[in-house]
């Protein structure tokens, strides 16, 4: 009945066809609805569409790309600047939270982790609208800042780059906290003892042991914040003004409002190309293989 089953060190079976039977449904779905759409987006980016209601026709129209760059260079630059600022801000806020939960959480660790996730059970748009209320001109925060003189009488919080960056930071914060927590939680407690024996000062132990070992989490978290932040248009729409439009806003507007599909497709392609280059350089610098 039971044939002898060969397994390798991880307990995996050598097989030729069975794994593919399991993989095929998912792979087909991804190829049909992720990889093929990328191809059709690329085709669209080289198509021409002379008027709003014309049917786009493929024609190696590389001019779409030069037009995308020359017209929307500012939005590209702004998107990546805002996303970088939001990533750094999220790192600064998330690290202490993850650190305290991992090392001081004790038996309340899971409860504290739950607390980090709970705010994100409300919808993304509703949270951003709530920030609009908090930062708004009739809110209490602006009054306080006016009273203590941090803001001049005519200065506002809402509809500024700071508000947009703040919104981006907030909305993607759990994606920073969770990976950092995971990498801190994995640290062998004996290493911490060794650190205490070797370095009399806690700060040196922190710098030499904890920070290097948490880098994979920082790496994963930064990408998980940077990528969605760079492509977002909701925060800029609710919390910003006409001068804070990001590349996502332009793609959305060109696609869904102006129906200028070729330009929107070219913009999307340039955007994804820049993101890939940033990710590649970044993974070289920090040198971690495991993203997921």
């Amino acid at each position: 009945m039971s044939a002898k089953i060969e397994r390798d060190a991880q307990g995996r079976k050598q097989a030729r066809y069975t794994p593919w039977l399991l993989l095929v449904p998912g792979l087909l779905w991804l190829i049909w609805f992720f990889y093929l759409p990328l191809y059709s987006l690329f085709r669209m980016s080289l198509s021409t569409k002379p008027s709003r209601f014309a049917v786009p026709e493929f024609g190696w129209a590389w001019s779409n790309y030069s037009q995308a760059f020359s017209q929307y260079g500012a939005q590209f630059q702004r998107s990546f600047t805002y996303a970088l600022a939001a990533t750094i801000a999220a790192l600064l806020i998330a690290y202490p939270i993850a650190y305290v939960i991992a090392f001081r959480g004790g038996r309340y660790r899971n409860v504290l982790l739950g607390l980090v996730v709970v705010p994100f059970f409300t919808n993304f748009l509703i949270r951003t609208l709530a920030w609009k209320t908090i930062l708004g001109n009739q809110g209490p925060l602006i009054n306080l800042l006016h009273t203590i003189g941090v803001l001049g009488p005519n200065e506002t919080l809402l509809r500024t780059p700071i508000a947009v960056i703040g919104g981006l930071t907030y909305n993607f914060l759990p994606f920073m906290v969770l990976p950092i927590y995971v990498s801190l939680e994995k640290i062998d407690p004996r290493l911490l003892d060794a650190a205490r024996d070797l370095y009399s000062h806690t700060w040196r132990g922190f710098r030499k042991i904890i920070i290097p070992l948490s880098l994979p989490g920082v790496f994963a978290g930064s990408l998980l914040v940077f990528i969605p932040a760079a492509g977002d248009f909701v925060n800029s729409y609710y919390l910003g003004n006409a001068k804070t439009t990001m590349i996502g806003s332009v793609v959305q507007d060109q696609f869904l409002v102006q129906n200028n599909y070729p330009i929107a497709a070219a913009l999307s392609f340039v955007f994804i190309a820049i993101v890939m280059v940033v990710v590649a350089i970044y993974s070289r610098l920090l040198g971690t293989e495991e993203i997921a």
Partner: peptide, 13 residues
């Protein structure tokens, strides 16, 4: 790793 806006745009095309 693909930004959502690119996923949405490519599916729409």
């Amino acid at each position: 790793t693909a930004p959502e806006i690119v996923l949405g745009a490519s599916l729409l095309t």
